[in-house]
Structures are given as structure tokens and as C-alpha cells.
């Protein structure tokens, strides 16, 4: 409990200091998370809601996003308040990438190998971009077990850098979704359950972003 409050206080202080010194700098909000958690679906939802166009392609094949994608000057508004930022969609972070996994999706061997190579570069790029973020939405698939090393490493690195974050428990439209499991796994963090696909609770997400930064 004490740790939870201390972390919140520390993040608020860090974010206030950041606001003072980076007032003129463009704010970057990053979407981070494991592979296939719905980061690009959420990026598209935000972009369509506020600027009327999508950011990236979404498929069921893992590692569809293999490069950093950014949409500049996205402005979200709520209740008289607004925030303009650059939205950064990052490749899913993974500890392993096996080209044979792509063969199951009907890819040819050479194409699968190339995709795996690009995916490894994407993971490295995503990690390197962590330092540039002013806030991060950690997008998790709420139908999967949240306690895994990738999630722990992402959260740990954001905490170590004092970057404000919000855990987005995505895919609440699916039957096996459990946002409470995500909350239990990561006590002390702000968690919001949404469906980037259907748009459920996305307006609440915008309110939370405005509060955080």
C-alpha cells in the first residue's frame, strides 16, 4: 500500500517536472505490449476517433507491426480539456521469435525467415524508443495470463525511467477476458479495461490519459 502511494507520488512529481521542462517539446505517447495484444487496433481506434484516418495494418499474424509507426499531432478532448501528442505504435516485445511459427499462417519459408528477421529488429527498436516516451499505454490481451516476463520487463523499465503509464486491459469484448486478473497481477498500477475493436470504454481511456499527463 505504502509502495503503491509512493510510486504514484513519484510518478506525479516526475510528470510535473517533465511538464515544466518539456513544455515546448512534442509529447509522445507510446503503445507498448507483447505481440498480438491489440496495440495497432488501439492506435487505429485513437487515430480514427480524432483525425479520421488509421495508422497501421492489423492482421491475426504475429509481428504484423515490425517498425515504429507514428501519427503526429493527435488531439484528444474531453470536458473542455485537450491534449496534443504524437502517437507511437511499437512492435510487440518478445523474448523469442521462431520463423516456423509464421509457416502456420501459410507463409513461404523465405518470407517467414524475412519476417522473423524484421520482427527481431522491431523488438530492438521498440526497446530503444522507451527513453523517448512521455507516457506509455501498456496494452495487454486480457484473455491471456498477464504474469509473463515481457509484461514484467516493460512495466519495470517504465517504472525505472519514471514514465507515467496506464495498463490497458484490451479485448474485453471476448468471453474469456478478465480485467480483474490483470488488476490482481499488477497491484498499484492504473488499469482500464477496454475493447479497441468495438470501442467499449475507449472514451474513459481518453479521460484517463488527460488526467495522467
Amino acid at each position: 500500500m505504502v509502495v503503491k502511494h509512493f510510486r504514484r507520488l513519484k510518478n506525479r512529481l516526475a510528470s510535473a517536472i517533465r511538464r515544466i521542462f518539456k513544455k515546448k517539446k512534442e509529447i509522445k505517447i507510446g503503445l507498448y505490449g507483447p505481440v498480438n495484444s491489440g496495440k495497432t487496433t488501439l492506435a487505429n481506434r485513437i487515430c480514427v476517433d480524432w483525425i479520421g484516418e488509421e495508422l497501421g495494418r492489423v492482421t491475426s499474424i504475429p509481428h504484423e507491426t515490425r517498425e515504429i509507426q507514428m501519427k503526429e499531432k493527435v488531439t484528444i478532448r474531453d470536458d473542455g480539456r485537450s491534449l496534443t501528442f504524437n502517437l507511437v505504435d511499437t512492435p510487440g516485445i518478445a523474448t523469442k521469435i521462431d520463423f516456423e511459427d509464421f509457416l502456420k499462417f501459410g507463409m513461404k519459408r523465405q518470407e517467414a525467415k524475412e519476417r522473423a528477421k524484421e520482427a527481431t529488429r522491431g523488438v530492438i527498436e521498440a526497446i530503444k524508443w522507451l527513453d523517448r516516451m512521455d507516457m506509455v499505454l501498456v496494452v495487454l490481451d486480457s484473455t491471456r495470463n498477464p504474469i509473463n516476463q515481457v509484461n514484467i520487463t516493460i512495466l519495470g523499465n517504465l517504472d525505472a525511467r519514471n514514465i507515467p503509464l496506464l495498463i490497458v486491459s484490451n479485448k474485453v469484448d471476448l468471453k474469456s477476458s478478465s480485467t480483474s486478473r490483470v488488476r490482481t497481477a499488477f497491484p498499484g498500477y492504473d488499469v482500464i479495461g477496454i475493447s479497441a475493436k468495438t470501442g467499449a470504454m475507449v472514451n474513459e481511456l481518453y479521460k484517463r490519459i488527460l488526467k495522467k499527463i
Binding site: 523469442k96 529488429r121 530503444k128 523499465n157
Partner: peptide, 19 residues
């Protein structure tokens, strides 16, 4: 942990898929 993931990704190949 992040450094380890980065270093691992640099050497992923057909024979070594990661950790």
C-alpha cells in the same frame, strides 16, 4: 532484462529462436 532481450534479438536465427 531489457539488455538481455536486445542482445538475444540480435542473434536470433533459424537455429536459435530466442529465450
Amino acid at each position: 532484462e531489457a539488455d538481455l532481450i536486445e542482445e538475444t534479438m540480435k542473434v536470433v536465427s533459424e537455429k536459435f529462436s530466442g529465450i
